[in-house]
Design a protein around this nucleic acid. Structure first.
Length: 419
RNA sequence: GUGUCCAUAGUUCAGCUGGUUAGAACGCCAGGUUGUGGCCCUGGAGGUCGAGGGUUCAAGUCCCUCUGGACACCCCA
């Protein structure tokens, strides 16, 4: 085969789009229930936007982003996530001046050049929300509640909300030293991967998948036990708010974030029904990002979730039957001469807002009936010499097989009433 | 980036230790009373056996490389 979709990308075929539309619609409804408004940003941005937000040090930049140079020599990047783009738009359009608290949501493709595996593609789709301009822990709780509400709307109950606090620059730096000191004592017993992490990102050792690492770090200090007064208070108030909102959660001190702009609340929603990549949602507070990207210091909190992962969970339950798109009426022609009348009737139906289909391949009547059945048309009319002469049609209801005679005018009225 | 497994019709798969024109089911097309679908019956189309090299008298079947897929590690914005 000459052309194939790029590694790690997928076509969403006509048989699948109905489900996607339904899922998107449910996400929108829930977002709007919480009064978040949709924002759409371009698929590509200046590379430096992401380099800046992610931090040039990590090997994400350059290694896992789709970056390219355009003809004017500018380095551009297909967005690997939405938050940076949303914040860029927030700053660029001074959204904070119109509204002290900006609440936006998105559904968007994103691109990362990683090795594909279960729940991981190179072009994937994210939905998420950001609340920009508020520092109160109740907003963090709302974001968590909103993300959980979306899964509940789909009837998914089997997920875990795990919360943690990653502190702020003040308490986190102190904590990092303490952690490093602790881990260095057992460094020779850690996995090779974790020994490397001790240099690059010691907090990641806490969520290592190596069982032995987990045992070795069972008494390691956790950020949540080393918070400054302000962060500690925020974390307590968050839990209070979650209790009021009736959100089931567990505190998991091993949830970490790799980037410095994250502050205080960090949370994940995970599912056992996914593979190794078991996170449905990742989110939290990022009070330092707006300023980092050139805006004025503005607190913000948000979440991002994977569409494909949501669909993976949905596909495991059979109750997700979607009503397939189908024409209301199929107009068959009995003979070659009547084809013109079929065309004009189809146009008349569509003008009247009645979804209709005809046979474009000039097949036999039998084949047309088969086609009407396959298309799941509710009704079929056959137009031939007789019908044209008498100005009537026989309307067949496919489900029952019943047929009755109508004039062309009555046909439109009948079907309009059936809409 | 690393590892394991995999790659045959549109789809799901069969093809034994290498041996004549590569099969099945479903799907698709056409017929089975000349103006009526589903079920059933009959027939048909459709495959450079992922690509390229090699071993052999002979390769879908063995070997190598590449590409792609699945899963895990890594990474995780």
């Amino acid at each position: 085969m000459k052309f194939k979709s790029i590694k790690g990308t997928k076509d969403i075929l006509p048989d699948e789009t109905r489900l996607w539309q339904l899922v998107e619609q449910n996400i929108r409804e829930t977002m709007e229930l919480f009064n978040y408004k949709e924002i759409r940003t371009p698929v590509f941005e200046e590379t430096s936007l992401f380099a800046r937000s992610i931090g040039e040090l990590t090997d994400i930049v350059g290694k896992e982003m789709y970056s390219f140079t355009d003809r004017s020599g500018d380095s551009l990047t297909l967005k690997p996530e939405m938050t940076a783009s949303v914040i860029r738009a927030y700053i660029q359009h001074n959204l904070g001046e119109k509204l002290p608290l900006t609440k936006v949501y998105y559904i968007s493709p994103a691109f990362r050049q990683e090795r594909p595996q279960a729940g991981r593609l190179r072009q994937f789709h994210q939905f998420g929300a950001e609340a920009i301009g508020g520092s109160n822990p109740e907003i963090d709780a709302e974001i968590i509640a909103l993300s959980a509400a979306i899964y509940k709307k789909f009837g998914i109950q089997e997920f875990q909300v795990k919360i943690n606090s990653v502190g702020c620059p003040v308490c986190r730096n102190e904590y990092k030293e303490k952690l490093k000191e602790h881990l260095t004592k057992v460094s020779d017993k850690l996995s090779i991967e974790s020994q490397k992490r001790l240099e690059t990102n010691p907090m990641r050792i806490l969520d290592s998948k190596d069982e032995n690492d987990t045992i070795l770090t069972h008494d390691a200090p956790l950020m949540m036990h080393n918070l400054c007064d302000e962060c500690k208070n925020h974390f307590e108030k968050l839990q209070e708010a979650l209790n009021i909102l009736g959100i089931q959660y567990v505190v998991d001190g091993r949830i970490v974030r790799g980037l410095d702009y994250y502050t205080k609340t960090a949370y994940e929603i995970t599912s056992d029904e996914l593979g190794s990549q078991n996170a449905l949602v990742g989110g939290g507070r990022y009070d330092l990002l707006v300023k980092e990207l050139g805006g004025k210091s503005t607190p913000a909190v948000g979440f991002a979730a994977g569409m494909e992962r949501l669909l993976m969970v949905l596909e495991k339950r059979e109750n997700m039957k979607t009503d397939t798109q189908h024409p209301k009426l199929f107009i068959a022609s009995a003979d070659e001469l009547s084809y013109k009348k079929v065309l004009s009737e189809a146009a008349r139906m569509r003008d009247a807002g009645i979804a209709c289909e005809i046979d474009w391949l000039r097949r036999s009547l039998k084949a047309q009936m088969r086609e009407a059945d396959r298309q799941q048309a509710d009704f079929v009319v056959v137009i031939g010499e007789e019908e044209i002469k008498t100005n009537t049609v026989v309307l067949k209801e496919m489900k029952s097989g019943n047929q009755n005679k109508l004039s062309f005018v009555e046909l439109v009225n009948f079907l309009t009433a059936k809409k």
